[in-house]
Measured scan of single mutants.
Amino acid sequence: MGKSNSKLKPEVVEELTRKTYFTEKEVQQWYKGFIKDCPSGQLDAAGFQKIYKQFFPFGDPTKFATFVFNVFDENKDGRIEFSEFIQALSVTSRGTLDEKLRWAFKLYDLDNDGYITRNEMLDIVDAIYQMVGNTVELPEEENTPEKRVDRIFAMMDKNADGKLTLQEFQEGSKADPSIVQALSLYDGLV
């Protein structure tokens, strides 16, 4: 993909415009910024974590950033290329609610087996709590990752089998306004 070129080839721009919710001009602008920050044309896990640390200076986002990195890194080569970056950004910032929920499901399904187990969710929720640090005051019933996961599973795990399917996750998330709101945070920002 033209590693350190400051412009993408027209056919690449066209393809990314088809695969995302961005215009050709927006794709070019994002590429310019991506190459400025990642001259090699790729972003590794350490660089990704560094970006998260800028956004969450009062907590430790390392663990959460690693989980997000793994979802962005579609081809699992340990690096995020621009096409992976822009497609994930498109879903998280401008995707439909169902697209965002499928993306979030992939984030929580750490072993990619098609289910979110209690332990997988606990890993992610714990990482989120570490990331936000003491900057967020949580209600008593959610002031630990374990309590939050218990509440989520009580609401979403309809067949009580200890794991969530994509359908259970989507339906449960849509029924909880706070989850829908959290997924909409990026709307309109890009």
Rank of each mutant, 00 (worst) to 15 (best):
Q49T: 00
Q130H: 06
F34P: 04
F153L: 10
W30C: 02
D161L: 14
Y108V: 04
P61A: 03
G162A: 09
V71S: 14
M131V: 14
A127F: 03
T144K: 05
F105L: 09
Y31W: 02
Y115Q: 11
K147H: 01
L101P: 03
E15A: 09
L8Q: 03
P57Q: 01
G162F: 05
E11I: 15
I152E: 14
P10K: 04
S4P: 09
V27A: 15
K100N: 11
K32Q: 14
M156G: 09
W103Q: 03
T96D: 06
A175T: 09
K63N: 08
S93L: 02
P145E: 14
R79V: 04
D98I: 03
S6V: 00
L89V: 04
P61V: 10
W30Y: 02
E11A: 08
I128R: 05
D60C: 15
T165P: 02
Q28D: 13
Q87M: 10
N159Y: 03
Q42C: 05
T66A: 09
E24S: 08
K19M: 07
L122W: 03
L189F: 11
E74N: 02
G47N: 07
Y52L: 10
M121P: 03
C38Q: 00
F153C: 04
F69S: 12
Q54L: 09
G78M: 12
K25D: 09
T92R: 00
E81N: 12
T20D: 12
F48A: 11
K158G: 01
G133F: 08
L183K: 04
P61S: 10
M155E: 03
D98Y: 11
F169T: 03
K25I: 05
G78H: 13
A45V: 09
F85Y: 04
I80N: 13
T66K: 08
Y21M: 00
K76T: 05
F82A: 09
K163M: 04
Y21H: 12
K147W: 07
L166R: 08
D77I: 01
V149W: 00
Q28S: 09
P10N: 02
G33T: 03
S6P: 12
D109F: 03
L183E: 06
E168D: 12
L164H: 04
K3A: 15
G162R: 08
Q87K: 02
T96S: 06
K9D: 03
V91N: 05
K163T: 01
T92H: 03
Q49R: 14
P61W: 15
T23N: 06
L97A: 05
E171Y: 14
S90V: 14
D73N: 13
P177I: 04
T165G: 10
A182L: 01
D126A: 12
G95M: 02
T23C: 02
K9L: 11
E120I: 11
R79F: 15
K32S: 09
L16A: 15
V125L: 09
K147D: 08
S173D: 01
E26Y: 15
L138N: 15
